Computed example of a mutant assay.
Amino acid sequence: MANQRTTAVPQVRTMARGEFQQFSLVPSDRLPAIVGDAVAVEFGRFIDQSESAIDFKQLFDILSAFALKLDFPWVGYCRLAYDQEIMEPAGDCPTIVLNYPDKWQERYVQMGFRRIDPIIKRSRRQACPFRWSEVYKDGKTTELERSILEEAATFGLRSGVSVPLHGPGGNFAVMSFVQPCCSETQNKTVTYLQSTALYYHLRVARFVELSGLDKVPNLSCREKECILWVAKGKSSWDIGAIIGISENTVNFHIKKVLKKLDTSSRTAAALRAASLGIIEL
């Protein structure tokens, strides 16, 4: 996943019949590297090591090592904004961190799969963790969305568990733990993955806070006034008449707000301003 746009219409590769059948979950004889009480011990070690992490890379390395012990060699973490766009990096804070196969990452970006990714779609409307098999079998999942999961399987990403991580203002993140085998992840393991994702997400937020990267943009009084009226549904002409300035001047202030809040539309800017506490609706 990457913050790139494309207008290409996805042309999804067709899976071989055997590969498609493998995607349907069949009980696996493979066991995680750790089982039983050992999982709790390793989870505690993950917490302790994460507390000592000095940067984002080290934190992700610790996360990946723990996930591998649960038989999930691939992990992906992505922070998204309320408007479905990937959030812009804040300083050294990454918006996407993953160790998926390089070829799949290239294919995903090239075909613009993020726009129709069923994992992101489900994460947007669900708070609980879910298995990829649940998305695949869901009647609401379209054939095009399902084909993305099928193609991911051809690159080795055959089953996974994703954890939505929702925050204020509609912003959210999603963390996925992925396996090369088709196995049904036990509920207890899913619970550990959820706790792991939440802790990682909170540590990232803490890094951002300590780095001073999460500061609220500074808007002038006039900019706040204009975006407040935008939030109330007023046009630029209406706003100009209300506060006694020209329509062009209103548009000038709104454009500055869009830039400061890193948004592409008036509505998105109004929503972001409200979520950051810049204006009160």
Rank of each mutant, 00 (worst) to 15 (best):
D102I: 10
G112D: 03
L198D: 01
A152D: 03
L261C: 06
S64W: 09
T142E: 04
A173P: 00
P10C: 08
P168C: 02
K234Q: 11
R125S: 07
G76P: 00
A268V: 11
C128L: 11
E247R: 15
E134G: 01
G18C: 05
C181M: 10
E106P: 01
V163L: 04
Y77L: 07
I34F: 15
Q110P: 01
F155A: 05
P168V: 07
D102G: 05
S246T: 09
C78P: 00
A197G: 02
R125I: 13
S195H: 05
L202C: 06
N171A: 09
S264W: 15
L276E: 06
S50E: 05
C181T: 13
T196S: 07
P10R: 09
P168W: 02
R17H: 14
A231G: 15
R272F: 13
T95D: 05
L70S: 06
T7G: 06
F46T: 12
Q11T: 15
M15F: 02
C182G: 02
V109C: 01
K215M: 03
I96D: 00
Q179A: 07
G233F: 14
E145P: 06
K259H: 05
P164E: 07
L219S: 00
S211R: 14
D55Y: 11
L144K: 10
A16I: 12
A205P: 01
E42I: 08
G139F: 01
A197M: 03
T191M: 08
R30K: 12
A2M: 06
L31P: 07
L165C: 00
T154C: 10
S123T: 08
L80F: 11
E223V: 00
Q179I: 12
E247I: 13
T196V: 09
W237R: 15
A67K: 03
V161D: 00
D102F: 06
S176Y: 07
Q22R: 15
D48K: 11
V204F: 06
